[in-house]
Simulated assay, not measured.
Amino acid sequence: MPPASTSSLRAETLTTGEQFRAAADLYTRVFGYDRAEYSLNPNLLSALARNGGSAVGVYTDEDDLIGFAYGFAGRDRDGGEFHYSQAAVVDTAYQDAGVGRLTKEHQRTVALGWGHRTMRWTFDPMLARNAHFNFTTLGGEGVGFVPDYYGRPGTDRVVVEWALQRDHDPYGDLRRAQPPALGRDDWGRVIRTTVTRANGARQDAQWLALPAQTASLADEEQTARDPLRLRLRDALTEFENQGRVLVACTRIDTSTAAYLAVGRTEGEEAR
């Protein structure tokens, strides 16, 4: 079936057992999971949706579920509260149809309804397309990096934070900054430059090159040994040690994209 236009799609909060089961099926199918421990329990979705969490879906006008996200209330060690989005998936037949954004926007509405003002989630740092969506499309920031996030080698993740109510994006001009001319030979390298802010000020910037297109590997042991992933791990760890945030992931050409890491803009508190 061809992708539907965004105007023909609708987002809604999931409430019935049938909807929760359909969401669990979509989750398993999109991620390609074939091990029972990675499946999603519909009862858990119902409990989350009733107790400070979220379970949202996007439907076609024929009532086919093509997008899904779920999350729960979170708190960090410093007492900061947020809505944690554990996963968001889009049917592969509907990629680039605006489904992901519609899904996240409805999840945002649910989170605000529970009183949350920020949302967090994680993604594989090798997935430039996901990074571009998180930073440039939604306006989130990469505020942390956690090696082996799920306690298994090969599960390194960038932590994204999305301000759900913000009158002004302090990184808006930086998200549009053009990276230097980088290519395949630069993958995993950090390039230091300066960028010009909208007010004319110059700001220190660091660019990290990576493949523009990479499939997430199901074999985590192979992933953990990938030399490029290890170089990305070192660079992202150093960004965090320096107190930098990721604010953009820009595609340079068909082969190469680049993260932009900058110092936190004044007025944006560390999370």
Rank of each mutant, 00 (worst) to 15 (best):
M1V: 14
P2I: 06
T6E: 11
L9W: 07
T13P: 02
T15S: 15
G17Y: 04
G17N: 15
E18A: 14
E18W: 02
Q19V: 06
Q19N: 06
F20N: 06
A22C: 05
D25L: 07
L26F: 09
Y27L: 03
F31K: 09
G32D: 11
E37H: 15
S39A: 10
L40C: 07
N41A: 13
L45D: 00
L45C: 00
G52S: 09
G53C: 01
V56H: 06
G57M: 07
Y59P: 01
T60M: 05
T60W: 03
D61M: 01
E62C: 01
D63M: 08
L65S: 07
I66P: 05
G67H: 09
A69G: 13
F72L: 14
R75E: 15
R77C: 10
D78Y: 13
G79C: 07
E81G: 01
F82P: 02
Y84S: 13
A87I: 03
A88H: 04
D91Y: 03
Y94E: 03
G100N: 13
T103F: 04
E105A: 06
H106N: 11
R108G: 00
V110R: 00
V110K: 02
L112G: 01
G113I: 06
W114R: 04
T118V: 12
D124N: 14
M126G: 14
F133A: 11
F135E: 06
G139R: 03
G139N: 03
G140F: 06
E141F: 00
G144S: 14
P147Y: 12
Y149W: 09
Y150T: 03
R152V: 15
P153L: 09
D156V: 01
R157C: 04
V159Y: 04
L164Q: 02
H168L: 11
H168I: 08
D169I: 02
Y171L: 05
R175M: 07
R175P: 09
R176N: 12
R176P: 00
A177F: 06
Q178Y: 00
A181K: 11
R184K: 10
R184T: 13
D185G: 10
D185Y: 01
D186C: 06
D186H: 14
D186N: 15
I191T: 15
R192W: 02
R197A: 11
R197L: 13
A198M: 08
A205K: 06
A205E: 11
W207H: 07
L208G: 12
L208C: 11
A212I: 10
Q213A: 13
L217I: 07
A218P: 00
A218H: 15
D219E: 09
E220A: 08
E220S: 10
T223G: 00
P227S: 04
L228E: 08
R229F: 08
R229H: 06
L230D: 14
L232F: 12
L232Y: 08
D234T: 14
T237N: 10
T237S: 15
F239G: 03
E240F: 02
E240H: 11
Q242I: 00
V245I: 11
C249F: 09
T250L: 00
R251S: 13
R251A: 12
D253L: 04
T256N: 02
A257S: 15
A258H: 12
L260M: 10
R264P: 01
E268C: 08
R271N: 08
